[in-house]
Simulated scan of single mutants.
Amino acid sequence: MQTVGVTGGIGSGKSTVCHIFEQLEIPVFYADYESKNILQTDPQIREQIRRFFGSEIYDGVILNRKKLASIVFNDPDKLKLLNSIAHPAVLRKFRLWLKEQLNVPYLIMEAALIFESELDVILDKIIVITAPEVIRIKRIMHRDNILAADVTKRINQQWGEEQKTKLADFVISNDEIQLLIPQVLSIHTKILKDKQPSKRNYY
């Protein structure tokens, strides 16, 4: 059973694409969601975040996400530190989730930083979602209620689309012109035809 990564820059539409795969009964592990959840719920992770980012980063057990974002997206070293805390915990959850998935043709991991975090080494195939930067900025401004300049800072902390697409097995354009469903169905069919077993070791 193969595991496929879905990645792309912030605002590219990764979750939208993954929801289409879910309609095809393909299980999806949302790594970015799990990362946010772990920062909120895991006591050991919360302690590390307090230690490195200040006790005021939490209001009780509620993480001040805007404050954390303002720190890490203005300091690449702080962002790297945050990822080094969260990503191992997310990977542990992913491995547990994998063991629960039975009788499915393949699995998907959705994550923004698959290449940046070197998660591609545990995945059989990678799908990269692309979208024009102006559209991505508009989407994130609307979703997170932040300024365009703040979105641009986040974009600049990630690999560029050209760098990602060079390493992709498949590319989906989410430019609000090309239809998503036909692109997803085409990739789904190709993955189903690939009968090779996974060569990755998740454990």
Rank of each mutant, 00 (worst) to 15 (best):
residue 50 R to S: 15
residue 172 I to C: 03
residue 86 A to V: 14
residue 134 V to L: 13
residue 66 K to A: 15
residue 80 K to P: 03
residue 73 F to Q: 03
residue 56 E to C: 10
residue 95 R to P: 04
residue 12 S to W: 01
residue 151 V to S: 05
residue 62 I to D: 15
residue 97 W to L: 04
residue 32 D to R: 05
residue 16 T to M: 08
residue 19 H to T: 07
residue 6 V to W: 00
residue 198 S to Q: 03
residue 108 I to F: 02
residue 160 G to P: 03
residue 182 P to D: 06
residue 36 K to E: 13
residue 79 L to G: 02
residue 91 L to K: 04
residue 59 D to A: 15
residue 142 H to P: 00
residue 29 F to C: 06
residue 157 Q to Y: 07
residue 112 A to L: 07
residue 73 F to I: 08
residue 117 S to D: 09
residue 13 G to Y: 04
residue 42 D to E: 15
residue 152 T to I: 13
residue 51 R to F: 15
residue 1 M to W: 02
residue 133 E to A: 12
residue 91 L to Q: 05
residue 85 I to C: 12
residue 183 Q to I: 06
residue 88 P to G: 14
residue 161 E to C: 12
residue 22 E to L: 06
residue 75 D to I: 04
residue 193 K to W: 01
residue 79 L to P: 01
residue 34 E to S: 09
residue 203 Y to R: 07
residue 48 Q to N: 09
residue 181 I to T: 04
residue 198 S to P: 02
residue 189 T to R: 11
residue 22 E to W: 02
residue 113 L to V: 11
residue 111 A to D: 05
residue 40 Q to N: 15
residue 46 R to W: 07
residue 133 E to W: 00
residue 181 I to N: 00
residue 56 E to K: 14
residue 8 G to R: 02
residue 116 E to V: 00
residue 36 K to N: 14
residue 6 V to A: 01
residue 64 N to V: 11
residue 59 D to V: 11
residue 143 R to W: 02
residue 82 L to F: 08
residue 88 P to H: 09
residue 22 E to H: 03
residue 24 L to N: 05
residue 41 T to D: 14
residue 1 M to K: 02
residue 76 P to E: 11
residue 6 V to S: 01
residue 35 S to A: 15
residue 131 A to C: 13
residue 176 E to M: 10
residue 37 N to K: 14
residue 194 D to Y: 03
residue 79 L to W: 09
residue 86 A to C: 14
residue 119 L to S: 00
residue 121 V to L: 05
residue 43 P to N: 15
residue 168 A to L: 05
residue 24 L to H: 04
residue 72 V to N: 05
residue 89 A to G: 07
residue 22 E to V: 05
residue 58 Y to G: 10
residue 32 D to E: 11
residue 197 P to G: 11
residue 102 L to M: 10
residue 130 T to E: 12
residue 166 K to E: 12
